[in-house]
Amino acid sequence: MTAHAHTPGTIGPNSITRMAQALTHQQGEAVTARIFEAAGLMHYLSEPPTQMVDEKGVTALHRVVRETLTPEEARSVSLEAGRLTAEYLLANRIPKPVQTLLRLLPAGPASRILLTAISRNAWTFTGSGRFQVNRDRSLELSITGGPICKEIQAHEPVCDYYAATFEHLFRSLVHKNTTVRETACGATGASSCLFAVSWDV
C-alpha cells in the first residue's frame, strides 16, 4: 500500500467520497445532499476531495447518517461504502504483484503481510486514532479513538464501514470465506472498537 504524507488529525478522502457514492446509490441525490449539508460537507459533493481531509468532517458525516437514516439503512450504506473503499485500495493502492503474491500464499502468512501493510498505513483511516492487531487467541483488530463512532451513541456497534473494508480486502487477498464482525464499539461505551476476523480453512 502507498499513501500520502501524514498530517495529524486527517484521514483519507475515501471515507467521504465512498459514503457519498453509497448514499447516492441507495438513498438518492436529494437525501445525500441533505446529509452532506447537515454535516457541513456540501462542497465535497461538487468537488470530491482527492487529498487527506479533516477527520472532524468524517465524524460529522457518520453522525448525520445515523441521525437521518434508520439503523438498517445506515448500516447498509456504511457497508457499501466500506466495500467501495476496499475496491479503490485494490485498484489504486495495493501493487498488483503484491496482490498476486498474497493470493498464492496460505491464509496465515498472507494475513500477516496484509496486516503489516494496513498497520503501516493505519493513519489514513483512523486519523488521530490508533490501530492494533491482536493475535493472542484468534485474530482481532482494534481501533481506539477512531473518527467514525466518536459522536455516536448506540446500543450496537456502528463501525460497519471499517468492518466491510477489512472483510472485502481479506476476501480478495487472504481467504474468500473471511468474515469480519465488530464485537465492541466506542458508540456503545467500549474503550476500543474490536473486529473479529476469521475464515474457514
Rank of each mutant, 00 (worst) to 15 (best):
A22F: 01
A163M: 02
C193L: 03
C185Q: 01
T32G: 09
A117M: 15
T100H: 07
T178M: 04
V77I: 11
A190T: 00
H175E: 02
A91D: 08
P157G: 03
I118D: 04
A33H: 12
V180C: 14
V58R: 05
P71D: 05
S15R: 09
C185M: 03
E67M: 09
V77A: 10
R66I: 13
P71I: 05
T70S: 10
H4E: 13
T144R: 07
V31D: 08
A60K: 07
L90S: 03
R103G: 12
P157M: 04
A3L: 10
L104D: 14
G9Y: 00
M42V: 14
Y44R: 07
T59G: 02
L90I: 06
T100I: 13
E73F: 02
R83P: 03
S172W: 04
N134E: 11
P49K: 10
I16A: 12
L101I: 13
H25R: 12
R34I: 15
S46D: 11
E182S: 13
E29M: 06
S78G: 12
H25F: 14
G145A: 00
A39S: 09
C149F: 01
D200F: 12
I16Q: 05
L173H: 03
N134T: 05
H62M: 07
V64L: 04
A122H: 02
R93H: 06
F170D: 00
Q51P: 09
I113H: 05
I16K: 09
T178R: 12
I118H: 02
T126H: 06
P97M: 01
E55I: 03
E37Q: 10
N177C: 11
Q21S: 11
M1A: 03
T85K: 12
E37D: 15
D54N: 08
E80R: 15
C193F: 01
L105D: 00
Q132F: 15
F36Y: 05
R63N: 10
R171W: 05
E87C: 09
H4L: 15
G9L: 08
C159S: 13
T179R: 14
G57H: 01
A184Y: 04
T68G: 10
Q51H: 13
Q26Y: 13
P48C: 01
M19R: 06
F125W: 10
R135M: 06
H43P: 08
P49L: 08
A5C: 14
F170P: 00
T59M: 09
M52D: 10
V31G: 00
Q27H: 08
T124S: 08
I143V: 07
E55F: 05
L90E: 15
Q26C: 11
K176G: 15
A74L: 01
R63G: 07
I152Q: 00
I94P: 00
I16P: 06
K150I: 05
E87K: 07
E72L: 08
I94N: 02
T183R: 06
L61R: 03
L101P: 03
S15M: 09
G40K: 01
E55G: 02
A190W: 00
T50H: 15
T124Q: 03
N134D: 13
M52E: 15
M1T: 15
S142Y: 05
L169H: 04
R130G: 09
A86K: 02
E156I: 11
P157D: 05
A86F: 04
L89Q: 09
R75E: 14
R130P: 05
C185D: 04
